[in-house]
Design a protein around this nucleic acid. Sequence first.
DNA 1: CTGAAAGCGCTTACAG
DNA 2: CTGAAAGCGCTTACAG
Lengths: 332, 332
Amino acid sequence: MAKSLKDIADELHLSKTTISWVLSGQAEKKGLSKRTTERVLKCAHKYNYQPNFLARSLNTQRTGMLGLIIPDLSDTFYASLARLTEMEAEKNGYTLMIGSSEGNYARENNLLDTFRNKLVDGIIIASTQKCTILFDSLASDGYPVVTIDRLIPQLPFSSIVLDNRQASYRVVKDMIGKGAKRIALFTTNSYLHEMQERRIGYEKALQEAGIESQYVLDVPFEEYASNLIPMLENLLSQQPAVDGLFFATHTLANEVYRYFFQHKISFDAYHFGCIHEEAYYRSVTPSIHVARMPIEKMAEEAVRIVSECIECRIAKKEQPQEHLILEATHNF
Amino acid sequence: MAKSLKDIADELHLSKTTISWVLSGQAEKKGLSKRTTERVLKCAHKYNYQPNFLARSLNTQRTGMLGLIIPDLSDTFYASLARLTEMEAEKNGYTLMIGSSEGNYARENNLLDTFRNKLVDGIIIASTQKCTILFDSLASDGYPVVTIDRLIPQLPFSSIVLDNRQASYRVVKDMIGKGAKRIALFTTNSYLHEMQERRIGYEKALQEAGIESQYVLDVPFEEYASNLIPMLENLLSQQPAVDGLFFATHTLANEVYRYFFQHKISFDAYHFGCIHEEAYYRSVTPSIHVARMPIEKMAEEAVRIVSECIECRIAKKEQPQEHLILEATHNF
DNA sequence: CTGAAAGCGCTTACAG
DNA sequence: CTGAAAGCGCTTACAG
C-alpha cells in the first residue's frame, strides 16, 4: 500500500509537520537539522512516497490543473489545439485535462461540472454553445474561463478567436485572383458567430471584385456527411458555371475532397478554398487556398490568460478580460 | 462564491449530515421528513450547489475517474482510441482523463505520477516503454493498470493488443495474392514487441509463398520523416524489382503516400499494405491493403477490465489478469 | 426524525 | 530545532 505522511512520521518518530516541510523543500527555511532532513528524504524515497493529490489540493485550494473542453478529439484542428495547449500548460506548471464534448451539450455540461467542482483551477473551452446555462453560474462564481475558437457572446469571459471575416475574405479574394468567377460557399453550424463572420468575408470579397452571383450551401450539421454530397452534386449540375468551392470548415472540405478522389474527379476544374489546413492538403494539386489557424498562438494566449485569471482570483483581484482576434496565415 | 454543505446547513439550521443525506439521495432511507428534504433540495438548487470533488473523493477514496495515457494525440489511431475509450468510460460511470506522453518518457512518468496520486481510480496506457521504473511501484501498490496496444512484458498488468503477427501476415499474404513478388517492409521502433511480431508476420507470409527476397527498412523513429524518404528513394532506385510496400505503421505509410502524391507518382506501379487504416486511405486508388485495428473492442475491453480491477481492489480481492489478443479486420 | 463527531491526508499559522 | 492543532469540505458510523 502507498504510504502517507503519517506513516513516515511514525516510523521516524517525527511529526507530520516536519515531514511535510522537508518534502516541500522548506527544510532550510524552517531551520531543520541536516540529519533530520536526510532521514526524512531517505525514508520517503524508500517508500516512493507521493503526496496525496486530493488532500493537498483540498488544503491549498489549487489543483495545478487546467481543463480543456473541445467539441471533437478526432478533428485535426482540435487535436492540434489540445496538443499545443498541453505543451503550453506544462511550460506554465500546469497539467492539462482534456475532455471532448463530441458536440453534445449534455457531455459538455458534464465536463464543465466535473471540472469546476474544484478539479481544475481554470477552464479553456471551445463550446458547442447549444446550451449555455452553466456558463452563467461559472461567471457569477468568478471561475476562470477562457473561450477559444468559439466566442460565447454576452458572457464576461476572455476570448481568443480567429479573425474569421478577414481569413475568409482573404481566401476568397485569392481564389478570385487566380481566376475563379463563380465561387460557392459551403457552410454549416451557421448559427455560430464565427460562421457568420466567414460568410461576411466571402460576400465582401465577391462584392469587392464586382461578382454578383453567390452560391451559399448551408449544410445541416447533423448527418452532414449524407447531406453534403447530394447538395454538391445538385450545385454542380444546376450551376455548371461554378468554378470555385470555398469551405467554411475543413470537415466539409474533407468530405468533398474524398468524393473527388473516389470518383476520380480532377481537382483541375475548380479553385478550392478552406479555413484550416489539414496536413494532406499539401499533397493535393493544384493547391488549395487555405487560411491556416494560428493554433500555437491560440494555445499560448489561452494558457497565459487563464493563468492570469487564476492568479487574480487567488489574490482576490479582478480578473482581466481580453478579447483577442488573431490573424490566419495564408499559402498564397 | 460557491456554497458548501455547511453554508446550506447553517442557512436551514440543519446539520451537514442531513444535507449530505438528502443530496446523496439517501433521504428516504434515513427517514428524513418530506418537508426537510424539500427545503434542502430547494436551497441547494438556489445556490446551484455542487459538492466539492476533492473533499468527496478524499473521503470516499474514489474519484470516479479513469486515466488514459497515449503516445500521441494527433495520431488518428490514438485519437480514435481516446474517443471510444471516453464513450465507454462514460457508459460505465467514469470520467476519462486523457494525457498524451508525446512519446516522451518524462512526460509519461509525470502523467503516471499525477494520475496515481489518487487522481484516477485506474489507468489505461499505451506506453512508450522507454522507461518503466514507475510501473514496478504501480504494480506493487496494486494500482489498477491495463496496458493497451502495447504490451509491457514482465509486468503483472492485464493487456489488450492486436494479433500483430496475424494481421501483418494476412496483409502481406493478400498483397502476394494480388501479384506482388518483392515486398519491402518499412518498420520503426523495432525494439517494441509489437513491431517484432509484425515483422515475423511479414516473413511468414513471404516464406509460405516461397519468396526469398526480403527488404527490411528499419527507419529510426527520431526524425523519421527526414530519414524515411531517402531510404525509400534508395530502395526504389537500387531495387527496381520491388513491387510492394508494406508499412508496419500508418505514420510511415502517411509519409510515403504524401511523397507519392507530391511527386505525382502513380500508385498503380506498387502494391501497398499497412497496419491501421486512416480515413483517407479509402480515397486512394488502387486500394491499400489494410489491417483495421479493432479500436472499439479495445476500448471496451480496456474499460471493462480496469473497472473490474478497481472493484476488486476496493473489495480487497485479487485483481484479475487478462491478456487479450484481438484480431484485425481486413479489406480484401 | 436529526445531529455531534471522527476521519480522509495533507498544509500552515502558532507556540514553544 | 520541532510539534500539537486547526482546517480544507465532504461522508458515514454511532448515538439519541
